[in-house]
Simulated assay, not measured.
Amino acid sequence: MLHEISFPSSNDRDQVTGWVYVPACEPEGVVQLIHGFGEHSRRYFHMIVALMDAGFIVAADDHVGHGATAIANGTWGDWGDAGPHTMMEDEKRFKDLVCEKYPDLPYFLFGHSMGSMIARDFSAKYGDELAGAVYCGTTGIFKNTHEVRAKLDEAIAAGKGHESDPAFVGELMGWMFARCEEGASLGNEWICHDPSVQKDHAEDPFDAFTHPTHNVSLRDFIDMMLCIEGTEWAAKVPADLPVLCVAGDQDPVGNYGEGVYQCANWLADTGHEVTTKLYTGYRHEIHNYDDLKFEVEEDLISWLMMHL
Rank of each mutant, 00 (worst) to 15 (best):
C192V: 08
E163L: 04
H162N: 10
G183D: 10
G183Y: 13
M173E: 02
I191M: 09
A178K: 04
V169L: 05
G161L: 10
P195M: 14
E182P: 01
L152A: 01
S164N: 05
E163F: 01
G170E: 11
P195D: 12
W175R: 04
V148Y: 01
L152R: 04
G170D: 10
D165S: 03
W190S: 09
V169H: 07
C180Y: 14
S185M: 05
M176G: 04
L186E: 15
G174C: 08
P195E: 12
W175Y: 14
S164R: 08
H193Q: 13
A167G: 11
K151N: 03
S196L: 02
A167Y: 06
L152E: 09
G187W: 07
A158C: 07
E181P: 02
P166K: 15
A150C: 06
D165R: 07
S185A: 09
W175L: 05
V169E: 13
H193C: 03
A167S: 12
V197H: 00
H193S: 08
S164L: 03
M173H: 01
D153G: 01
E182A: 03
E163Y: 03
E171R: 09
P166F: 02
E163R: 01
A184E: 15
V197A: 01
M173D: 00
F177N: 14
M173F: 12
S185Q: 13
C180L: 11
C180A: 13
L186A: 09
I191C: 03
G170S: 06
A150P: 00
E181W: 12
F168Q: 03
A178H: 07
A158Y: 11
I191N: 05
N188H: 05
F177R: 14
F168A: 05
G161W: 10
R149M: 09
H193D: 15
C192P: 02
F177K: 13
A178N: 12
L186C: 06
A157K: 01
G187N: 06
P195G: 07
K160F: 04
A157S: 04
A155W: 05
A157R: 07
S185T: 14
N188G: 01
E147F: 07
F177E: 15
K160A: 04
V197Q: 03
V197T: 05
